[in-house]
Each structure stands twice: as C-alpha cells, then as structure tokens.
C-alpha cells in the first residue's frame, strides 16, 4: 500500500513537471509549481519525513508561490514563444540524465535497511537523543544540537539573501527620489 502511494505520487509529480515545461502562461506555471511542492510534501510524508513535509508545504508551496505572484504583478504574465528549436539543451539534459541513471546502478535499493548511510553515525544519534538529549523528536535533536552549526550557517545565508533583496529593491527608490523621476523605461 505504501509502495502504491509512493508510485502514484511520483507519477503525479512527473505529470505536473511536464505541464510546467509545456505551459506558456507564467501564472499557470506558478500555480503548477505550488501544486508540485504540495504533492512532493505529501510524498515526503509517505517517506516518513514529516518535519520536512511540514516545511516544504509551508515554505516551498506557500512562501515561494507568494514571492512568484509578487514578481508576476511587477513583470509580465506571458512567456515569449521561441521560434526555432535548439538541440543543444536537449543534448546536455539527455547526457546528464543518462550519467545520473548510470550512477544509480551502485546505489542501495530503495528501503534497504542495510544501506551504508544508515549504519555509520545514525545509530549514535538515535541513542544519544534517547539517553542524553531526551526529547522525542530525533530530527529536532540533530538539527539544533548535533548539527547546530549547520543551522547557524543557514541563518547567515537567509540574512545575506534578505540584505541582497533589500539592496536590489530598496536602492532604486532612493535613486528615483534623488532624480525626482523614474528612469524612462526602454522598450525593445
């Protein structure tokens, strides 16, 4: 049953991704990408990653979609259709995909309880969470304690991105006020 849900949700993700590729309307693409995030959150629940699913549903499906809708109101809704079809992107993508699929040959089977990644440090984290940290959620214990520096680095990245967005979008208003008018837009 679990396997069936997994298979169906992955298929849904595939259909959504192809729809995103095909549509020329950016609003439709944005909504589909929100749906893609939400479907992947459902898939993450079936793969036992409840914390990740929570974050993906809130941040991936929620915040990203809002940001994109905001951008669409400031720019255009429609994508230009390119006239000639170029082969080079398709070639690059096919070769990369083939190499990645070749790479999966050596990977442990899906759901393998003896996968190397499971045997190295994870048992120590689980035992440590039970005996030393004593909170029920192992993911929280690793995130905030064993891998606390990762989270500190993540905060630094978000701060940098926030400063970047403010500099990009905030500076132009000062310039406009100094010049008295907005810069004339150049139309192609």
């Amino acid at each position: 049953m679990e396997l069936l849900i997994n298979t169906v949700l992955l298929g849904l993700l595939g259909i959504t991704a192809i729809a995103i590729l095909m549509t020329r309307h950016l609003f439709v693409a944005t909504m589909l990408s929100g749906g893609y995030s939400l479907t992947s959150a459902a898939l993450l629940v079936s793969l036992d990653a409840v914390d990740v699913a929570f974050t993906e549903a809130a941040v991936g499906a929620g915040v990203s979609t809002v940001l994109m809708l905001g951008t669409l109101t400031l720019t255009r809704r429609r994508e230009k259709v390119q006239k000639e079809f170029r082969w080079s992107p398709l070639l690059v993508v096919t070769v990369t995909g083939a190499l990645l699929i070749y790479g999966t040959v050596d990977m442990p089977a899906f759901g393998d309880p003896n996968a190397p990644a499971l045997l190295h440090i994870v048992p120590e984290y689980i035992a440590g969470t039970r005996d030393d940290i004593q909170i029920p959620n192992i993911v929280t214990a690793i995130l905030a304690s064993y891998r606390g520096y990762d989270t500190l680095g993540e905060t630094a990245v978000i701060f940098t991105a926030g400063v970047g967005v403010l500099l990009l979008l905030g500076r132009r208003r000062e310039e406009d006020e100094e010049a008295g008018t907005r810069r004339p837009e150049r139309d192609a």
Partner: peptide, 26 residues
C-alpha cells in the same frame, strides 16, 4: 526508524532554496 540525517539536511536546504528564489526574483 527511517534515517533522520537526510531529513535534517533537507530542512536546511528548503529554507536556503527559498532564500535563493527570493534573491533571483528580486
């Protein structure tokens, strides 16, 4: 249990992903 370590890494990656999206859209 399923392996909790990838969950932790991906929790970080999701938030960083939104940060890059925001910067790109700006």
């Amino acid at each position: 249990f399923s392996n909790p370590l990838p969950h932790v890494l991906i929790l970080t990656a999701i938030v960083v992903g939104v940060a890059t999206t925001a910067l790109g859209l700006a």
